[in-house]
C-alpha cells in the first residue's frame, strides 16, 4: 500500500477505533455487572467502519446511526464523558438521561441519533440530505449506517429510491455483520452482497473489507467527494462480523462461540490496523498504537468517573423536552 495516508490521519483513526473498543468494553463490563439498565448493543469488532467513514466526513456532515450506535457517536467526535453519563442515565449526559444507549445522539457533532427502530435512519438521512442540498443551500453530506437486517426493511427501498431519483448527497453504509439479531443473514436473503441492489437504483455500489479502516476510508472519501460534487448517493457495503451477541447479555445459543472467537482473532480491526500501518506502510509504530491504547484506557476511566460523579436528572423534569414551546 502506498503512503497515501498521513501519519495524523492514521493516528486519528487508530485513536478513534481504540476509544470505541475501550468504550464498549467498559459498557459491557458495567452492564453485565448490573450497573447499566435497559438494553445495550456494542460495536466491538466493527470499529473500522464508523471510524473510516467518519474520518472522511466534515464536522458539519450528518450521520444517522443504529441501535448499535456508540461507535458511530465516538467516531463522529462526541465526548466520551458525556456519552458515558448518558448511558448511566445522568443529567450531564448527551440526552440529559432521556435517551440512554439506544438513543444516544450529539447534534453538536452532526450525530443525529442512534435509533431503536431497525431501519429507522434511512429516511431521516435522506431527508436531511434533501434539505441541505435544496433548501439550506450547503454542501453537507448525510450518511446512514445500517446492518444487513435493516436492509430488508421497506424504508431501505423508499429512501434509496428517492435519494437516487433526486441525486441526493447521502451515503448508504451497510455494516454487513452477518447477523440480524439471532438470524443468519443468508437465511433471509438470497444475495451474498446486499450492495448488488445498488445496480437496481442506478447508483454505485462497492464492497469493502470492513475490518480494514484504510479501505473503508478510501471508499467513504470517494463517496463523499461524489456526493459533495452533486453526483448523488453511493452504497458502500462493509464486510464485518458481529463478534458480540445481539445485545450485551445475549447467551448466543444460536452460534458456536469458538467460531466467533476465531473470526475475532483473525479479523480484529485494531490488529489489522497494526499490520497495515506499522508493518506494511510504516506510518505508525506498534509502540505508538500501544501509547494510544493507554491514552484511551485512561479516557474511559475518566469517563466512567465523570458519569458516576454526575447528578441524576430531576424526576420532576420529566415533561421537559416533550414540546419545544414548553
Amino acid at each position: 500500500m502506498a503512503a497515501k495516508y498521513t501519519k495524523e490521519l492514521a493516528q486519528e483513526m487508530y485513536k478513534k477505533m481504540s476509544l470505541i473498543r475501550h468504550f464498549e468494553e467498559s459498557v459491557k463490563r458495567d452492564f453485565l455487572a448490573g450497573e447499566i439498565p435497559g438494553f445495550t448493543h456494542v460495536y466491538i469488532g466493527e470499529e473500522a467502519i464508523a471510524t473510516g467513514v467518519c474520518a472522511a466526513l466534515r464536522d458539519d456532515d450528518l450521520i444517522e446511526s443504529t441501535h448499535r450506535g456508540h461507535g458511530h457517536c465516538v467516531a463522529k467526535g462526541a465526548d466520551v464523558k458525556l456519552m458515558m453519563a448518558e448511558i448511566f442515565g445522568r443529567e450531564t449526559g448527551l440526552c440529559k438521561g432521556r435517551g440512554g444507549s439506544m438513543h444516544i445522539a450529539d447534534f453538536n457533532v452532526g450525530m443525529l441519533g442512534a435509533n431503536g427502530i431497525v431501519g429507522g435512519g434511512f429516511n431521516l438521512a435522506t431527508g436531511a440530505a434533501l434539505a441541505n442540498k435544496e433548501y439550506l443551500k450547503n454542501d453537507r453530506v448525510s450518511v446512514v449506517f445500517f446492518g444487513d437486517g435493516a436492509s430488508n426493511r421497506g424504508t431501505f427501498h423508499e429512501a434509496i429510491n428517492a435519494a437516487s431519483a433526486w441525486n441526493l448527497p447521502v451515503i448508504f453504509v451497510n455494516e454487513m455483520n452477518c447477523w440480524a439479531s439471532t438470524t443468519p443473514y443468508r437465511t433471509t436473503c438470497n444475495t451474498e452482497d446486499i450492495s448488488d441492489r445498488a445496480y437496481g437504483y442506478h447508483i454505485p455500489g462497492v464492497v469493502v473489507d470492513g475490518q480494514n479502516v484504510f479501505e473503508v476510508y478510501d471508499a467513504a472519501a470517494e463517496a463523499v467527494e461524489r456526493a459533495r460534487k452533486g453526483e448523488g448517493p453511493t452504497f458502500i457495503e462493509c464486510k464485518t462480523y458481529r463478534i458480540e451477541g445481539h445485545f450485551v447479555g445475549d447467551p448466543q445459543l444460536y452460534r458456536d462461540a469458538k467460531e466467533t472467537q476465531k473470526i475475532y482473532e483473525e479479523t480484529d480491526p485494531l490488529k489489522i490496523f497494526r499490520e497495515k500501518a506499522a508493518d506494511e506502510m510504516g506510518i505508525m509504530t506498534r509502540e505508538e498504537c500501544d501509547e494510544l491504547d493507554e491514552f484511551c484506557a485512561k479516557e474511559l476511566e475518566e469517563a466512567k468517573k465523570f458519569a458516576m460523579d454526575s447528578p441524576w436528572p430531576d424526576a420532576e423534569g420529566y415533561m421537559k423536552y416533550v414540546y419545544a414551546d414548553e
Binding site: L112, N123, E158, N161, A162
Partner: peptide, 25 residues
C-alpha cells in the same frame, strides 16, 4: 422547486420530512 412530487413512498414522505427538519428546514 419548493413543491415536490414524491414517489409513492409514505415512509420517505414523513421520515424524509423529519430528517429535513432535523437538518434545519
Amino acid at each position: 422547486g419548493r413543491i415536490l412530487d414524491t414517489p409513492i413512498s409514505e415512509t420517505f414522505i414523513v421520515g424524509g420530512g423529519v430528517g429535513a427538519a432535523l437538518a434545519g428546514a
